[in-house]
């Protein structure tokens, strides 16, 4: 097993097939990254929204305590 390309330029070009190979790689990596980051962002967002809701409930309870027993 050895490196197939002698220079960065050669790896980029891949004897004419470079545009195809690297388009496939870039689009795939982009989609895979998007799939990974989407749940991470949503996870944080839903925790935040739950926290905000809880804070709002606490405020309401503090302003008119007779509403909740």
């Amino acid at each position: 097993m050895s490196m197939q390309f002698e220079s960065f330029q050669q790896a980029w070009d891949m004897a004419g097939h470079g545009p195809y190979v690297w388009t496939a790689v870039l689009v795939s990596v982009f989609v895979l990254c998007w799939l990974m980051q989407r749940p991470l962002v949503q996870h944080r967002k839903s925790l935040n929204s739950i926290a905000v809701q809880m804070r709002r409930e606490k405020m309401r309870q503090a302003t008119n305590p007779e509403e909740h027993s």
């Binding site: 891949m14 004897a15 190979v21």
Partner: peptide, 20 residues
Amino acid sequence: LLYAPQDAKQGNSFRIIYLH
């Protein structure tokens, strides 16, 4: 993408197989 030998017939385009 960089270390596997290239295909005799398809050349370097065969490297897409590693994703496809």
